[in-house]
Amino acid sequence: MNDQSQSYHYRVIARALAEIDAMQAGGQAPTLDGLAARMGMSPAHFQRTFSQWVGVSPKRYQQYLTLDHARHLLAERHSVLEASLASGLSGTGRLHDLFVKWEAMTPGEFARGGEGLTIYWGWFESPFGPALVMGTDRGICGMGFAAEQDEAEVMTDLMRRWPRADFVEDPMMLRPWVLDAFGASGSAPLYLIGAPFQIKVWEALLAVPSGHVTTYSDIARVIGHPAAVRAVGTAVGRNPVSFLIPCHRALRKSGALGGYHWGLPVKRAMLAWEAARTEAVPVSQT
């Protein structure tokens, strides 16, 4: 798939996900014809494009946006966190079909607030709306989404996490990693910038496979601090690399989605997108 086609698909899917989410939140049932018309496509072309990217039809995808589905995920799949860690997945995690390798700052480097560090940034299309991506020469260190927020707010949010770093706009430097991250066609290295406890929590999140979920209490237990549920929640909320470090897969014990730093509709869309791709039956190549 060429770059122009990928960018086109990002825009179509981002708009379609937003339309489906907004209509379902308003108690409406989107139709294929209606969605296709709003995308400026024929129903057949829209269904084909959507299914190729998400893995299932728009109608099937809508089922994954419900709270009941989140509860189902929690009841059936959250226990895989311990199994994943026990299997040696800590440090690398399966995200879609993508393996992410990561390294972290030392505590001393973190305490200096990014002093002496050059962070490159750029805006990109994503399946979940405009995405601000930041990275060092070692890997992606920040990712935020502007579907529910002003782009300036997202920029300020990420920049203030490393107040002494030098920020340079250079989307071309980051672009290969970003295409791999959203296209699941390669490896996207991460450079984690956080306190040691935060990094331990983020490492646990990386062990939660795509299409599965966990709880804050499960994370607290597997990292060896079962009483630190509140601190775990804070660390999850401070995750600087949303989506790649999958904080959207952390739910409340009740099965409720809870909040999300970049907006609850974005979290719902991410969970639905992953669940649809995970559960889709592969198309025969014959």
Rank of each mutant, 00 (worst) to 15 (best):
G186F: 09
A228K: 11
L257Q: 08
W202A: 02
H225L: 11
A220P: 09
D180H: 15
A220Y: 01
R221I: 04
R221W: 07
A220E: 05
W177A: 15
D166A: 15
G259T: 14
P226L: 10
I219P: 07
G263P: 13
P163L: 05
M173Q: 10
T234H: 09
E203R: 15
W202R: 03
A231K: 14
P240T: 03
L244E: 01
V229E: 08
F182K: 00
A250D: 00
S185Y: 08
R230N: 12
P171R: 14
G255P: 11
A188E: 11
P226K: 04
G211E: 07
V241H: 00
A227V: 10
G183A: 11
V241N: 02
L257F: 11
W177N: 12
R252E: 15
C247D: 15
G211T: 06
H225Q: 14
W262H: 14
L257D: 08
G194H: 12
G183S: 13
W177Y: 12
G237N: 14
I193F: 15
C247V: 06
I193Y: 11
D166Q: 15
I223F: 08
A207Y: 01
V222W: 00
K200C: 02
G183F: 09
R221V: 08
A181N: 06
I193P: 04
A231G: 00
P176H: 11
A188D: 00
R164Y: 11
E169A: 07
F197C: 04
T215M: 09
G211A: 00
E203W: 04
R230G: 10
H225N: 10
P196I: 12
